[in-house]
Amino acid sequence: MTVSVRIDQASVEATDLPLMSVRSVSKFYGQRIGCADVDFDIWPGEVLAIVGESGSGKTTLLNCISTRLTPTAGTVSYRMRDGEMRDLYGLGEAERRLLLRTDWGFVHQNPADGLRMTVSAGANVGERLMAVGDRHYGKIRATATDWLGRVEIDADRIDDQPRAFSGGMRQRLQIARNLVTAPRLVFMDEPTGGLDVSVQARLLDLLRGLVHDLGLAVIIVTHDLAVARLLSHRMMVMKDGRVIEHGLTDRLLDDPQAPYTQLLVSSILQV
Results as ranks from 00 to 15, higher is better:
residue 221 V to H: 13
residue 14 A to L: 13
residue 244 I to W: 11
residue 129 L to P: 08
residue 162 P to D: 11
residue 152 E to G: 13
residue 22 V to H: 04
residue 220 I to S: 12
residue 171 Q to G: 03
residue 196 D to A: 13
residue 234 R to W: 04
residue 58 K to V: 01
residue 147 W to L: 10
residue 260 Y to E: 06
residue 121 A to I: 10
residue 39 D to L: 11
residue 3 V to C: 13
residue 266 S to I: 01
residue 114 G to Q: 09
residue 236 M to H: 08
residue 19 L to D: 03
residue 85 M to D: 05
residue 214 L to H: 07
residue 196 D to Y: 08
residue 268 I to K: 12
residue 91 L to N: 08
residue 230 L to S: 14
residue 164 A to M: 09
residue 61 L to Y: 04
residue 11 S to V: 01
residue 243 V to G: 03
residue 144 A to F: 09
residue 152 E to R: 15
residue 254 D to Q: 11
residue 223 H to L: 10
residue 204 L to G: 10
residue 258 A to I: 03
residue 190 E to D: 01
residue 182 A to H: 12
residue 30 G to C: 07
residue 264 L to E: 08
residue 71 P to Q: 05
residue 232 S to F: 05
residue 105 G to F: 13
residue 261 T to A: 10
residue 22 V to S: 10
residue 117 M to A: 05
residue 83 G to I: 06
residue 205 D to N: 15
residue 195 L to A: 03
residue 109 Q to E: 02
residue 87 D to W: 06
residue 148 L to V: 09
residue 181 T to E: 01
residue 163 R to C: 03
residue 218 V to C: 10
residue 48 L to S: 10
residue 45 G to M: 14
residue 217 A to V: 02
residue 202 R to H: 14
residue 230 L to K: 15
residue 63 N to W: 02
residue 148 L to E: 09
residue 138 G to N: 08
residue 151 V to T: 02
residue 259 P to Y: 14
residue 6 R to I: 10
residue 103 D to S: 12
residue 86 R to W: 04
residue 186 V to H: 11
residue 67 T to V: 03
residue 104 W to M: 06
residue 89 Y to R: 00
residue 139 K to I: 04
residue 24 S to D: 15
residue 18 P to F: 10
